[in-house]
């Protein structure tokens, strides 16, 4: 059974900030959903190979050739902040 600590842990991994009320609510709701998911343990899958894609997939390779790509201004047009043709983020290292 999932508890509040698990919810806080998952929220931390996912970079989500939750207030107390949300933590309580998500603990209950996600607990119920995972309880439902536990149905899966009723099925014997010991010798079953997992499936990621249901239709035949193969590695797709192409020649390493330079092709047309988006111009820099267009790629940066949606950036919340940019400087000198680059994405700008708050500083990561302290002074």
């Amino acid at each position: 059974m999932i508890d509040k600590k698990d919810v806080e842990y998952a929220a931390g991994l996912a970079h989500l900030k939750l207030d107390e009320e949300e933590k309580e609510k998500y603990t209950e709701q996600i607990g119920e959903i995972l309880d439902y998911v536990d149905k899966l343990s009723e099925l014997d899958t010991d010798d079953v190979v997992p499936t990621a894609y249901t239709v035949p997939m193969k590695n797709v390779l192409r020649k390493d050739e330079v092709k047309k790509s988006l111009p820099r201004e267009k790629s940066l047009a949606n950036a919340p902040d940019e400087k000198d043709g680059q994405f700008r983020a708050p500083k990561i290292m302290s002074d």
Partner: peptide, 29 residues
Amino acid sequence: KRRIMIGTYALSSGYYDAYYLKAQKVRTL
């Protein structure tokens, strides 16, 4: 947010086999 949390939990260390791998096997069935 709810789904990101479920997914993150299901993929997190110690739970991957019980949830994600199990679900991928059930997918085969």
